[in-house]
């Protein structure tokens, strides 16, 4: 039970951190200043959410007995034990390896062009919004509080990305071509979120139950964007929740973690 909660907390944190890191790649490269700022603000929200979640995971670990700690040992960073101190949020973000990450594959895909970034954000925010809504009712008080706090931020992400999907889909021939190409690339990564992982059995809301509400949201925005929703129930990529990732995650982590790996346990 403790193991599941710990892994689930990491899953939520990893989703937020990895997508936050990806979006941050737009910093200074956005197509217009306002949109550059919008995406980096969204990154900031996501990384803030990740911090709260990682700290909660670290608290859970620090409170576990020896048996509990042994049960989750495979998810912990290797060099941290040598620090001889309690586990901290930064250890979980900056020192775990690729196979220990539990994020959805869609969050780690390269940022691509603007259409790719927008559509990925929309798919993810539409899911995260539903997930946090469910978590608000969680019997786990900390997860419920984090969800409560984060939901308002996610509402802004969902609106912003949804409006852009409509602009691109119902925009120019070029914007439409691009978002259709992004859709063709991304669709096979959308199903993973709804397939429950082993750790999504206890405290976690059943992700499969979120599917119809997600479909509805996608459908209504796509209708306004004059885009066709691809067939559901088709084959979908998976593995992120088990730590089996695309080749892209390793490069992302290498860039994100280089400082902490070069100077372990550093402080400013």
């Amino acid at each position: 039970m403790n193991k599941e909660l710990f892994e689930y907390t990491l899953h939520l944190a990893d989703n937020a951190l990895i997508l936050g890191q990806r979006n941050a790649e737009w910093c200074g490269h956005g197509p217009a200043l306002e949109q550059d700022i919008a995406l980096t603000n969204i990154s900031l929200d996501l990384i803030g959410q990740a911090r709260l979640l990682y700290q909660y995971a670290a608290d859970q670990y620090n409170a576990m007995d020896v048996g509990g700690q042994a049960a989750v040992a495979a998810l912990l960073p290797k060099p941290w034990k040598e620090f001889n101190r309690a586990l901290q949020e930064d250890d979980l973000a900056y020192l775990r390896e690729e196979r220990q990450f539990r994020n959805l594959l869609i969050t780690e895909l390269p940022k691509g062009d603007w259409a790719m970034t927008i559509l990925r954000q929309f798919f993810f925010s539409a899911f995260q919004y539903l997930q946090y809504q469910q978590l608000q009712q969680s019997s786990d008080a900390t997860l419920a509080a984090i969800a409560d706090k984060s939901l308002k931020e996610t509402a802004y992400h969902l609106r912003w990305s949804g409006e852009w999907v409509i602009r691109l889909g119902d925009g120019t021939a070029e914007s439409r071509r691009r978002i259709e190409a992004a859709l063709a690339d991304l669709w096979m990564f959308t199903g993973e979120a709804f397939v429950p992982a082993a750790f999504e059995t206890g405290i976690a809301p059943d992700p499969a139950a979120l599917r119809s509400a997600w479909d509805e949201r996608i459908g209504s925005v796509f209708a306004e964007a004059t885009l066709d929703v691809p067939a559901t129930g088709t084959w979908s990529q998976g593995g992120g929740k088990r730590g089996v990732h695309t080749e892209h995650l390793g490069y992302l982590l290498a860039e994100m973690q280089v400082l902490q790996r070069t100077y372990p346990n550093m402080t400013w």
Partner: peptide, 13 residues
């Protein structure tokens, strides 16, 4: 409205 996001997380432009 110019942008829903601005110089800090709490503001729009």
């Amino acid at each position: 409205l110019i942008s829903q996001f601005a110089s800090t997380a709490c503001k729009s432009m």
